[in-house]
Simulated scan of single mutants.
Amino acid sequence: MKGSKATVLSFAEKCKNILASNWQGHLNTIKADAKGSKEDIYTSKVKYILRRGKPYIWVPEKELHNVNTIIDERGSFSVTSPFPGALASLFRSIQKLPARVALTGDVLPHKDEKSAAECLEEVILSEQKTISEFSYTVSGVLSSSDVYNTSRSENLKLLLDGDEKYTIYKFNPRSCIYIDGNGGTHEVNLEDMDASKADLLAPFSAKLIDGINQSEARRRALMLFCLTLLKANVKDAYMVSMDRKGFNVLGMIPSPALKDGLGQYQWKEFRLKLKEEARDVEKFCSQLVEMEEEAVKNVSSFSGLG
C-alpha cells in the first residue's frame, strides 16, 4: 500500500474507485444445459451496487445467466472507469480503452432480496441528497453534464421504477485484475481490496468528468494546466479520470515532424496532482477552480512580460 504522500493510488484503490464510480458492468457466465457446463460464455450488461465491498447484481429474469448459474456458479464481472459523452467518442476515434476492473468468482443468488432492494433505495436517496446539497462551486462544474447518462442514481432508479423483474445475485470475487488504459494488467490481492476504501467523490466522477469535458472554458483550463504545470503545449484536452490525489488528462500534442516537414498530432495522457487530497466532491471542485484561477494568472503575467 502506498503512503499518503504518494501522488497516485494503489491498484487496489483504483479498482475500488472504478467499482464505486460505475453502476453497470459486463457479467459473464458459462452457458449450460441439463447435461452440464459447456465452454461457451454468455455475456450481457447488467446494473449493480457495491455493498460491503462486493457487487450485488440485478439480472433481468429473461437473461440466460439465471439458467447458467444453476448449473455452474462460476463467472466473471468487468467494470470500466466511466467515459461519458464526448470522452467516449474520443476513445473510439483513437482506439483507446478506459481503465477497468476484471473480477472472477462465484455468482450466487441473494436470498434476501428485500434487504438488497432497501440497500439500493438507500444508495439512490443518499446520492440524490448529496447532489441537492452541493455548493454553487460544485453545481458550476456539473452544470454542463448530461444528467441521465452520468447520474448513478437516475440509472439505478430504473431498477425500482420499471416493469422488468430481476433476480439479485451476490458476486463473490476469487481474483481481481486491474487493466490500465494501455492494456497493461496488474493482479490485485483481494486482502488489499478488502482493506481499501473508495474515494467519497468516486460515485460522482462520471458527472464531474462529463461536466468538465462538455465545457469549452474548463477544457481550455485543462490545456493551461498542461502548459503552466507540466510545460506541455497541448492543442486540446479532456479529463479522463479523477481521484482524491489528482486527475488524468488526455492532451493533443504535436507528433514528430514527417519527411515533408509537416507534423501531425497525437494524444498523450498527463497526470496532474492536487495540492491537498480532496476527500469529497466539494474539496475537489474548489481546488479545481483555484487551479484554474492560478493558471490564468500565470499565463497573464507571462504574456505581460512579453
Rank of each mutant, 00 (worst) to 15 (best):
L201S: 07
E216V: 11
Q266G: 09
D40G: 01
I49L: 14
T29K: 00
D33C: 09
E277V: 13
A221T: 14
S175Y: 02
S139C: 05
P84D: 10
R271W: 11
D72N: 15
A117R: 15
K14R: 15
S151L: 05
I18Q: 08
F284E: 04
G105A: 05
Y166G: 10
D163E: 15
T29H: 01
E277T: 15
D243A: 00
V296Y: 11
N248L: 03
V138C: 07
D106F: 12
I209M: 03
E61I: 15
N298C: 07
L272Y: 12
A102L: 15
G184D: 05
K275N: 12
V141S: 00
E191R: 13
K96T: 09
N22Q: 14
H186P: 11
I41T: 10
I124R: 05
K197L: 08
A116Y: 00
K268R: 12
F225H: 08
S255E: 13
D194N: 11
L120E: 06
K111N: 14
G251I: 05
K207C: 05
L50R: 07
A195C: 06
D243S: 07
L274V: 14
V107E: 06
M242A: 08
L97C: 10
Y169W: 05
S175T: 10
I209Q: 01
K170Q: 14
V46E: 13
L64S: 04
I124C: 07
L125Q: 14
I57D: 01
P84W: 10
Y166S: 08
L274C: 08
E73D: 14
N68H: 03
D180V: 06
E216N: 05
L97Y: 11
R74K: 15
E127Y: 02
V123T: 08
V240D: 09
L64G: 00
L274N: 10
S153H: 13
F247V: 04
K14E: 01
Q264T: 14
W23D: 13
F83W: 08
S93D: 05
E294H: 07
F171Q: 10
L305V: 15
E164R: 06
D106L: 12
Y169E: 07
G162P: 01
I49F: 11
S255T: 11
G140V: 04
A6P: 03
N68E: 08
R174L: 09
Q287P: 05
G181V: 04
L201W: 08
D163I: 12
T167S: 12
A232V: 15
L262A: 02
L9N: 11
M1E: 04
E292Q: 07
C285L: 01
E61V: 15
D192G: 03
A117K: 15
L160N: 04
S44N: 13
S44W: 08
T29G: 02
K35E: 12
T185G: 00
R52P: 00
F91P: 01
L250V: 01
E121R: 14
I41Q: 03
F270N: 00
E276R: 13
V101Q: 07
D163F: 04
T69Y: 01
V188K: 08
S145F: 09
L262Q: 08
D236L: 02
T29S: 10
S303E: 11
A12Q: 09
Q264V: 07
S286M: 08
